[in-house]
Design a protein around this nucleic acid. Structure first.
Length: 774
DNA sequence: GCGGACTGCTTACCT
DNA sequence: ACAGGTAAGCAGTCCGCG
């Protein structure tokens, strides 16, 4: 009995076949060949190639006439499913597909841009990252849902750099650290005093040793290894003339690099962290603090060379910690990525580098293949630009009743958009179908097929049903068991994927793009939330606020929390009776008090004193810490104690501290992301000016980097006074008082009906009770 | 020439 | 490099005033 796991798929160019890398072993599949479709008869293709591209004939394995279902749109905009006859062009090698795209001269070509290994996983029934019995058989059988026990290692490199960006043909690799279960190691060719240090002779030996260690592992975690560690290692090895006995493939994927090692899973945590966490900065230190609350040893790139020269053991410790924490972050994210890999049916290496829209697309490609549908082509650049200019209306947001409210209940629609898609069968292949015209109800100018379930509703239904099953199971089992956490990861990944489908439909680069579908979905969403608000008001609720799929309500004259909840549940029963199947309005939470400032900006406190904050400055990274801290404390005073005097005192004390210079530099930094190439900016803005300064001084800067700066004193525009924290020798007291600390707290106080002027005369002792007579 | 009102660009949040 | 809705800051321009 053999139990095994598929961890990677690669096309081996020497062997000219698919390699299925298993946890233990390798399967070669010589039978699967690359292919695509052409809308032209076999004979025409043959004639055309004979005449124009004789050399390409050799690359063709075979030509086959096949039928695929596709959507046919007539001049009146009605759609129907037709059986399209196409030629399947099967070629010898993956590289032949791009060459044979010349056949588009004869007719539309389809599915010509699906990478071969991905194609393999779409067409074949084998799931990565799951234990199989008899994996090599067609009758392979899944055994358990555990995360495969892979030999995992984290690695990190330190490189010499003198202020500027390190260059491979100048700056050497100094040390390389590893962490794995049972291995703590820092390689270097300088003798540091440290227990984990392994001394090697020189840099060449260091590189050889690194590769030798990496070869032993299935799973490699890095932090920015795609763009830095691996490319640098490879370039440096080349420069030094070291032969690396490991196939490290660096390729370009859009703006970024990818570092792939066949048969291994390289997980670069940096892109995952960027996608998943919302932080001010994304250094490993910041991630550690966010995830584990641990303050990791920080050195700063500019000091590495100094510590190296001084043979400071702290460099070894720092380097080791990089590997160690990379490993921990890796363990943290692995299960979720494994679940994505299984659901999307692509390798973990690929899935880790996919955006949610790409995952949706591969999921759809698989279903469409199974149903014998032809996948729509990706849009041309012109089509993409046309789509970019298409606008439509989104969710409904109700203007909140500003101020403090007590006894608040929130309710929301469980997965509003997915449930609308399923309930109304909204899909590019069901919209405005010929077969149901006049029969199927017209919604916002469109109707949807009643005879056949659409691709997207079908995929969503499967995802949601699977998630329901899991949630049912979760209720029955012990929260602390490993089984529980596995299922929890699975249901989380299912939720992410289900929620990405609506956005995908409106994404201009999507194959299954349909602005019309997206438009109907939001239309129905607006209808449901507005109807719910109306019904709620009719029922006796005061609707404080609503946004897209949820609402906050109170009820005047209510005596207790229990009474409110009772009324809420009764309301929910009534509403849910009227809603379509698959749709449900749910109780979300009870809050003893809440402060609503504007649309998208409010704060709530529950019975346990837990404070929830949405949209306010204090949850935004582009406000200084001092401004955020002050707002948080003011809010706390108001929500917990209802004490306005206390709030005023906090503000006055902060201003005093700012005037007296009693503020940490850290607390003055404002973080702003660079979202495009510096030359693309049309206006002068503080973060852009600082970015220009960094570039002028030979610094490295990428799109997506977050810049921190402090506003220094002077009378010129703010942009000209923004300095990097390390360069800032003073700060503009008045700017921090008038433009940072005060506006956020004033907005809160004004929501309570306290004017700026009143705030300034802080003498009167007062509480919220005075204002609202609670 | 001055200062407030307004606009466009930009960011980061909410759902 | 999934969507639209939203608040808000900064820089620059407009506009009325006199």
């Amino acid at each position: 009995m053999s139990i095994n796991v598929l961890i990677d798929v690669d096309y081996n160019p020497h062997d000219r076949c698919i390699y299925l890398y298993l946890l233990n072993g390798l399967i070669k599949d010589r039978n699967f060949k690359p292919y695509f479709y052409v809308d032209a008869p076999i004979e025409d293709i043959k004639k055309y190639l004979e005449k124009n591209h004789k050399e390409l004939l050799y690359h063709i394995e075979k030509l086959e006439t096949i039928e695929r279902a596709m959507i046919d749109r007539n001049l009146k905009g009605r759609n129907r499913i037709i059986k399209k006859t196409l030629t399947k062009v099967v070629v010898k090698y993956p590289k032949d597909v791009p060459k044979l795209r010349v056949l588009r001269e004869l007719g539309e070509i389809y599915e010509h841009d699906i990478p071969f290994t991905k194609r393999y996983l779409i067409d074949n029934d084998i799931i990565p990252m799951i234990y199989y019995r008899n994996i090599e058989d067609k009758e392979r059988e899944i055994v358990g849902n555990e995360i495969p026990e892979l030999k995992a290692v984290a690695f990190d490199m330190e490189v010499y750099c003198e202020g500027r960006e390190p260059v491979p043909d100048r700056d050497p690799i100094l040390m390389v650290s590893f962490y794995s279960q049972g291995m703590k190691k820092v390689l270097s060719y300088k003798p540091f005093e440290h227990e984990y240090l392994e001394l090697v002779e020189n840099e060449k030996e260091l590189i050889k040793r690194v590769v030798k260690i990496l070869k032993d592992y299935d799973l490699i975690y890095t932090y920015n290894g795609d763009n830095f560690d691996f490319p640098y290692l490879v370039k440096r090895a080349k420069y030094l003339g070291v032969n690396i006995p490991l196939d490290i493939r660096i390729s370009r994927g859009g703006m970024h690099l990818r570092s792939y090692i066949p048969g291994k899973i390289h997980i670069d945590l940096y892109p995952i962290v960027r996608r998943t966490l919302n932080l001010s900065k994304y250094k490993l230190e910041d991630v550690c603090y966010e995830l584990f609350g641990v303050r990791k040893l920080e050195v700063g790139h500019r000091n590495i060379s100094k510590l190296w020269k001084e043979e400071d053991r702290n460099l070894v410790e720092y380097s080791f910690q990089d590997a160690y924490y990379t490993y921990l972050v890796g363990e943290y994210f692995l299960p979720l990525e494994v679940m994505f890999s299984r659901i999307v049916n692509q390798t973990p290496f690929e899935v880790c580098r996919m955006s949610s829209s790409q995952m949706v697309e591969y999921l759809l490609l698989r279903y469409s293949y199974r149903k014998n549908f032809l996948a729509p082509n990706r849009p041309s650049e012109e089509e993409y630009k046309r789509r970019l200019n298409e606008y439509y209306e989104g969710g409904y947001v109700k203007e909140p009743i500003r101020g403090i409210h007590e006894n608040i209940v929130s309710m929301d629609f469980r997965s509003l958009y997915p449930s609308i898609i399923i309930s109304y069968n909204i899909s590019p292949d069901t919209i405005d179908c010929e077969c149901c015209e006049g029969e199927s109800e017209k919604i916002h100018g469109h109707w949807f097929c009643r005879r056949r379930r659409g691709l997207i509703p079908e995929v969503l239904y499967k995802l949601i049903e699977r998630r329901k099953e899991i949630k049912k199971k979760l209720k029955r089992i012990d929260r602390n068991s490993s089984h529980y956490s596995l299922l929890d990861y699975e249901q989380r990944s299912l939720k992410v994927l289900a929620n990405s489908h609506y956005g995908y439909l409106a994404y201009p680069r999507a194959r299954w793009y349909s602005k019309e579908c997206a438009e109907v979905i939001t239309y129905l969403g607006r209808m449901f939330i507005q109807k719910t608000i109306e019904e709620g008001e009719r029922y006796g609720f005061k609707v404080i606020y609503a946004d897209t799929d949820g609402l906050y309500v109170t009820m005047d004259g209510i005596k207790s929390k229990e009474e409110l909840l009772e009324r809420t549940y009764e309301f929910l029963r009534e509403i849910n009776k009227k809603l379509p199947k698959n749709m449900e309005l749910e109780f979300e939470g009870y809050y003893k008090r809440g402060l609503f400032v504007t649309k998208k900006k409010y704060a709530l406190i529950d019975e346990n004193g837990k404070i929830i904050i949405k949209g306010l400055e204090l949850v935004r990274r582009d406000w200084s810490n001092i401004a955020k801290k002050t707002q948080r404390e003011v809010l706390k005073a108001l929500l917990e104690k209802g004490n306005i005097k206390m709030a005023k005192d906090i503000i006055i004390n902060t201003i005093e501290d700012l005037r007296k210079g009693r503020i940490n530099k850290e607390d003055l930094i404002i973080y702003t992301q660079i979202t495009k190439d510096i030359s693309q900016y049309k206006t002068t803005a503080p973060h852009v000016e600082v970015a220009k300064k960094i570039l002028r001084n030979g610094g490295r800067l990428k799109v997506g980097d977050v810049i921190g700066y402090i506003i220094t004193s002077g009378s010129k525009p703010i942009s000209e006074r923004a300095e990097l924290p390390e360069d800032a020798e003073n700060y503009d007291v008045n700017y921090y008082i008038d433009n940072q600390v005060l506006p956020p707290v004033i907005r809160i106080m004004e929501a309570l009906g306290i004017s700026k002027e009143e705030l300034k005369s802080e003498s009167r002792q007062s509480t919220l009770q005075d204002f609202f007579r609670i």
